[in-house]
Design a protein around this nucleic acid. Structure first.
Lengths: 337, 337
DNA sequence: AACATTCCCGCAACCGTTCCCATATGGTGT
DNA sequence: ACACCATATGGGAACGGTTGCGGGAATGTT
């Protein structure tokens, strides 16, 4: 059982002085006799005094805690982002409360509510794949909470955002496949309404257009990033009169699943169909053949998001420009193409 | 900028009653007129009142926050544990502050200090691979903090612990290799002082002994779970007059590295040397050939740890037995053996 | 009608800290 | 001797809630 907490009053009593003086001594206030300060500091050490952050937070109205909302910590992408955020804000003494939405907009909403009650000093949010209603985050904005949006961002709010190199990534990857002589390039996309998915699809389309390759609607499949969606898409493509000779995906997880499906069907990769991914997840270097993919550095995305948050927290009064940071990537060519 | 926070005093003023009554109405205290309560509740809603958890925490001396200390959130094992913990304690309204020690005992110590100041209601700790001094966690115990130790546990403290199926895992895996006809089975272990590594090594030794296979000290290598250590070990084994015909590892990450090294040396797996792992990390199903491994379910380990914590928090006064939970596993046989 | 009981409600203390204001003390300038 | 100032300290309000205690009004009991 936790016994009595040592408070500044205990120190004051032991020393026969007032708690005001103890407080001043502890906070490096100059209006205190050096000898008194020394005595207080010593007594604090011998009593093993620990300041009560709750009381302090009540006065200052800050907790030095940041709320981080992500869909799923078990995805390497989000884990790396979290790590980047923590290392960025940790240096300034901020702690992070991680909340998982499990890709549920409802849980996302509840998490925001709960963290608001916990009086976190700010939010770093990556929405679920299904979030279409941004009322909650707008509410946060209205209430004046420092906000940073990353990866799956909320548009239309003047807050800092950090995103992946979406357009460029798929443009580069598609270009690469075309250079490898592929003519019928399929695209495994994400949810239609998701901005990141849209941009990646635009990159893909742009590369096709620029190379005079006609766009075939049959070759684009939208998924919710679920294994079943991928299987349906691959089955459909393989059943086509003219199946694709390459499959470009907007996420590595999907690419790995595509490769496994093709392998089980006896389709040779890259001989019959080349496969490319996006992200350079740990998995992409492990599969056989290695997956060609557009590398992203989620750790750095996290760091950038964390730094934006620190900027807001610091300048609290001189508004921070709602800068949008694009995390640069590069193509990693492996055996799958 | 965050404007004025709505407090119970605001509600009280608007309604012309005292803040005590408002407080009682809001906390379902029976000593309040149903009509008054209704009025308060309505006013709270129209004013969008949010209770201040800091003030509440100051009184109750609790934060409903739990500190979780892990070496590295980017390791799938720890990410899954964190997820399990969060889902277990989240139902009871507890939030988790995740702190990474980056495998540094010093940072681990600092994290514990910082979270103590933040007045978390309890700690769930997995130590670094190098932690040998457990003074910090013992201090926490003395101070009466609810404590749960998992995976890399602190022995000698009467607190709940959740561990992997260490002994049994390596016993089973080694037995499997022997059944496959392997005679010279090497062991890639972890740090010598780490309890989990010790137990796994004992499982390995036990299986050898039981099958009348002599123990060869040359065939055991200790690592700090680093890639360089693995390379050194593999090089040493391959240079032996009588190289091993199987390599058993105590962690999947090491097994994957071993397989890559062997492949780059032109050694056939499992033809020349069989390889087995521990954990069933996501990677083990992706490599070629698939890695035979002893499955662990880190998500469940996290859940068990979270439940232990809830038990302590609930029974606060009727001590909880310092139970040790072993998370059962099973052998997953794939191509590498 | 007098008294006990119940029901609501307000007052004030408290949690641990910061910070403004008042005050005592001693030294300096005139 | 007096006003004046700097320095060091104490007192108390404030942050936003909870809670024990006491009191007044309404009701029930004899």
């Amino acid at each position: 059982m936790k016994g009595h907490q040592v408070t500044i009053i205990d120190i004051a009593k032991k020393l026969g002085i007032s708690k005001s003086t103890v407080s001043r001594a502890l906070t490096n206030n100059p209006n205190v006799n050096p000898e008194t300060r020394k005595a207080v500091l010593e007594m604090a050490k011998t009593l093993d005094y620990q300041p009560n952050m709750l009381a302090l937070g009540l006065i200052k109205n800050e907790t030095r805690m940041l709320g981080v909302i992500i869909p799923d910590i078990q995805k390497p992408f989000f884990a790396a982002i979290v790590s980047g955020i923590q290392h960025a804000v940790g240096r300034m003494g901020y702690r992070t409360i991680i909340a998982q939405s499990d890709e549920s907009p409802q849980i996302e909403k509840e998490n925001i509510q709960a963290l608001m009650l916990s009086r976190v000093d700010g939010f770093l949010i990556c929405h679920t794949r299904d979030t279409r209603n941004f009322d909650q985050i707008k509410l946060l904005y209205q209430k004046g909470f420092p906000l940073v949006s990353f990866a799956r961002i909320c548009q239309g709010l003047p807050i800092p955002k950090v995103v992946e190199d979406d357009f460029n990534g798929l443009y580069t990857t598609t270009q690469h496949l075309i250079e490898r002589g592929r003519k019928r390039i399929a695209l495994l996309a994400g949810p239609k309404h998701l901005q990141a998915s849209k941009l990646r699809q635009q990159g893909y389309l742009s590369a096709l257009r620029q190379n005079g390759i006609g766009f075939d609607n049959e070759l684009v499949a939208h998924t919710r990033f679920l294994a079943d969606d991928v299987a349906v898409a691959v089955n459909r493509w393989l059943a086509l009169a003219e199946p694709p000779d390459a499959i470009c995906t907007i996420y590595d997880g999907g690419a790995v699943q595509v490769m496994q499906l093709l392998k089980s069907r006896g389709v040779n990769v890259p001989g019959d169909i080349a496969v490319a991914g996006f992200g350079n997840d740990p998995a992409s270097g492990l599969v056989e053949p290695g997956l060609t993919t557009f590398e992203q550095r989620p750790y750095e995305i996290g760091q950038a998001a964390g730094k934006h948050m620190l900027d807001i927290l610091k300048k609290r009064f001189g508004d921070v420009p709602p800068e949008i940071t694009i995390s640069e990537g590069r193509l990693v060519v492996r055996g799958s193409t």
